[in-house]
């Protein structure tokens, strides 16, 4: 059960034009900033937003002319949209009932699915009495109950608190692994995408900017958005042998390349010095501090100089260096942690 689609949705001031494919058993994450068109793409697949052009094929059969109720595409909505007047069991049994099963048979199917997501005890609870995590699992069971050819998840973990999120993420990964159809997942959280998906499709302003496996994308971002998502400094430059020129800055890198390239390195690869360090590392610039903020356990320092930079230092190092905005400082990047790849 595979998906092959080309989704075009035109609205005043916005155009979505993306190609999206997912093989049977594959989980594809649609990643992008707010307003990129992720949810529009998902709605286009489900038949909730009409396409201006393109097509949606499931196993080679066109479905984009069918109304939503005849596509057999399961959707887990962002805030789940469990029917408030029905019990968890009847929410899950809703789809099978619509497919023509009798009430008792539909409830048997639903009970089995609820059991699978570990909610057999809550079958008769109304959605208002379920926790966020439980509601998420009911929503998944409900979407799976129609034996969908394609499963769509819209920000499936966004409504959960941090703790529940961790737990549900792992569980969701298990359920998705057990699902034999194609899955498309929309998220703006890179961690969700990395953990849950086999392949990422990054969209910005309605167009695909990068696709690849999570590790490919994490190592080789191609846009500022992706770089920021995965926490890397990213530049576009010209390579010649082991050197890359980015504006006025010159990098030494591990790879030998020629022509236009991306250069990427993590903020932790940047070291800061009050005075010019001895035995000077190769990638060294003078830079001015723009701002300082907490970032996890570290301190992130935003700098500008020949290139804009983000650097992570430990709190004690920050105290030793006595960093203040506007201060001039030396920044060095380890060549071994600098990756260059063709643009």
């Amino acid at each position: 059960m595979s998906l092959d689609s080309h989704l075009v949705v035109e609205r005043p001031g916005f155009r979505l034009d993306v190609e999206l494919r997912a093989a049977a058993g594959e989980v594809v994450a649609l990643l992008g900033p707010n307003g990129a068109g992720k949810t529009t793409a998902l709605r286009g697949l489900a038949g909730l937003t009409p396409l201006s052009g393109g097509r949606v094929e499931l196993d080679g059969a066109e479905v984009h002319r069918l109304p939503a109720e005849r596509r057999r595409i399961g959707v887990v909505f962002q805030d789940y949209l469990l029917f408030p007047h029905l019990s968890a069991l009847d929410n899950v049994a809703f789809g099978p009932r619509c497919q023509g099963l009798r009430r008792a048979a539909a409830r048997r199917v639903a009970a089995e699915l609820l059991d699978r997501v570990g909610l057999a005890d809550h079958a008769h609870a109304r959605p208002a009495h379920l926790s966020g995590g439980q509601a998420q699992r009911v929503a998944l069971a409900r979407a799976l109950a129609v034996r969908p050819r394609l499963l769509l998840l819209d920000e499936p973990l966004a409504a959960l608190d941090a703790h529940t999120r961790l737990e549900i993420r792992a569980e969701l990964r298990r359920h998705l692994a057990a699902f034999d159809g194609a899955t498309v997942l929309v998220t703006h959280d890179p961690l969700d995408a990395m953990v849950l998906a086999h392949r990422l499709v990054v969209i910005e302003n309605g167009a695909v900017v990068q696709t690849g496996t999570p590790s490919e994308i994490a190592r080789h971002p191609r846009t500022d958005y992706v770089a920021r998502l995965v926490g890397l400094n990213l530049y576009r430059g010209e390579a010649e042998g082991n050197h890359v020129t980015v504006g006025e800055a010159r990098f030494s890198s591990a790879e030998r390349l020629t022509g236009p390239v991306f250069v990427a390195f993590p903020p932790s690869a940047v070291a800061l010095y009050r005075t010019r360090p001895d035995g000077s590392p190769r990638n060294l610039w003078r830079a001015t501090i723009d701002g300082i903020e907490r970032h996890g356990d570290n301190v992130r320092v935003h700098l500008h100089g020949p290139i804009p930079l983000a650097a992570d230092v430990t709190p004690s190092a920050a105290a030793d260096l006595d960093l203040t905005p506007g201060q001039e400082i030396w920044a060095a990047v380890k060549a071994t942690e600098t990756h260059a790849y063709p643009a």
Partner: peptide, 17 residues
């Protein structure tokens, strides 16, 4: 909230259902 109706449609419910 009309999104509940959309959710029902994705579950295969006809307009009348």
């Amino acid at each position: 909230d009309q999104r509940y109706e959309e959710a029902a449609a994705t579950l295969g419910a006809s307009r009348w259902t």
